[in-house]
Simulated assay, not measured.
Amino acid sequence: MNLYENKRRWKYLLLIGAMVIAATSLWYTNFLVQGISKSERTRAEVWSQSFKKMFETDNQEMMDYLFTVKDSLVVPAIVTNEQDSILVYTALDSTKTYYKLDTDKKYDPRYFLRELASMKAQHEPIPLEMNGTINYVYYKDSFLLTQLRVFPYIQLTIISLFLMIAYLIFSSSRRREQNQVWVGLAKETAHQLGTPISALMAWIELLKDKFDAETDPLILQMENDVKRLEIVADRFSKIGSLPILTSHSVYDTINDFVDYFSVRVSDKITFEVTGDQNQEALLNIPLFDWVIENILKNAVNAIEGPGKISVNIVENIVKEQIFVDITDTGKGIPRSKFVTIFQPGFTTRKRGWGLGLSLTKRIIENYHNGQIFVKESEIGKGTTFRIIIKSSLNYVPTTS
């Protein structure tokens, strides 16, 4: 299992664990709510019976006792007759049930109607027979029970926000540290390559002079490879700093690299560069070549046996953009992987690091203000990558 898949697996496991914890918390809270709800139902029933007995007894001591019991078991409740007329209420908001003494109206009827509707929606009424008629006791959850119903959701929301903020802070810090390590490693690599590259160039010049081999094809190829090493070292030295972009022909830049690259892969794979040859864009040649190299290498690895890699350059005049479509006849990419292939660590090769396309995306988006994505792909038939960069035909360089 590659690094990206392993990382994604752990994310799923942590997500499942968090969901289990949340579900367990909600289940247990609901269990407590159900228990308290049953208890409040019992209190409401006892309150109803105490209220009934108060009207049936003439014993003062029993009356006082029933008053005490009724008051100790109080819940927000309303007693109505069969016509829904309100007879008695208890534990409601006193600011809504009574007005100032200098007014004739002592209650807010709209408040009672709202409370009665709320009680009807929450619980079944408790029938109460008094003086040969059936009345109904409606009640609602206590303030404590209402809080308990809502509390776990508030708690989980706060915990989720805290974890999200902590994750973003630590991830940002970790990325900065990783970037510093990669930048330092890249620059040190460029520095270490500098000395042997200079020595190789000197040896090639010595071979030319000693054997009079200015036009020898083998030495010319060696010279090209050393120059390529110089470009690679230059790429590494540019990581972590803002590269300088200058206007270049997109067709010529890509065609020159394809000419270099094509002779270094299997002759069973053919290359073709087509499209508008006059379009220019602001490019950093070493970095843009790196992008093309990574995509072409992936295309070569995707082709099993004879195949073809095509590069087509098209201008979007309306948006002043240039489209570079790179198409191969390889094994294709599943649609579910169109986005994940650009993630660091994702690779389908046993010895791959999964950094090529991730670096490619960063070079295009961060350094060239462009876009790169999988335009289309079909399993067994091939893949097309699209690069979008800004045209520079109307670009006027600034002068200091």
Rank of each mutant, 00 (worst) to 15 (best):
D328P: 02
T68F: 07
M119T: 12
G356P: 03
M222C: 14
I158N: 05
I36K: 08
V258N: 09
L283P: 07
K105G: 01
A202T: 04
N59A: 02
F338W: 12
S266K: 03
V291D: 06
R43D: 13
A299F: 04
Q279R: 09
R176D: 08
F55E: 08
R110F: 13
L163D: 09
F323K: 08
R110S: 15
Y98T: 15
A44V: 13
K208D: 13
Q60R: 03
A190E: 01
R362E: 15
Y111D: 07
V374W: 05
Y260A: 08
Y367Q: 06
L148W: 10
Q371H: 09
V265P: 10
K140N: 10
N316Q: 10
K106Y: 11
Q122P: 03
P109C: 06
L357M: 09
S25Q: 10
R110T: 15
L145E: 03
K381Y: 11
Q155F: 14
A202F: 02
E129P: 04
L148M: 14
N81Y: 15
V69D: 02
I326T: 01
G307Y: 00
K208I: 13
T189L: 14
E214N: 10
I303N: 05
I285A: 01
P397G: 07
N298K: 10
R114D: 10
L156D: 06
K140P: 02
F236L: 14
T24A: 13
F338Y: 15
N394E: 06
N312F: 07
E45V: 09
W27Q: 05
G332Y: 02
K100V: 02
I154P: 01
N394G: 07
E205W: 00
I134M: 12
L287Q: 11
S247I: 00
K350N: 01
I244R: 03
M164T: 14
T57C: 11
R349P: 00
G194M: 01
K52I: 11
D209Y: 09
Y107F: 14
K140I: 08
N131Y: 11
T103H: 11
I333T: 04
V263H: 12
K38A: 03
S48E: 00
E40K: 02
S198R: 05
A199R: 13
T68C: 01
Q83M: 13
H248V: 09
I341G: 00
G184F: 05
D234V: 04
V46H: 01
A23G: 09
L242N: 13
K106C: 04
I231E: 14
M130R: 11
K319M: 09
G356E: 03
I231R: 12
L87G: 03
P125K: 06
E45R: 06
K11Y: 06
R386F: 10
D252H: 06
L116H: 08
I86E: 05
S172C: 06
I165R: 04
L218G: 04
I388R: 01
N284Q: 08
T399W: 14
L283Q: 07
I86K: 06
N278Q: 15
N81E: 15
I86H: 06
P152I: 11
K297S: 10
E315S: 14
Q180V: 02
R41E: 12
F162H: 08
L161F: 11
L92D: 05
P397I: 04
T360I: 01
D256G: 05
D325V: 09
P334L: 01
F170Y: 08
A23F: 11
P152L: 07
T24I: 10
F143V: 02
G356N: 10
L185W: 02
W10E: 05
A299V: 02
D259C: 04
P127F: 15
F236C: 06
D276A: 04
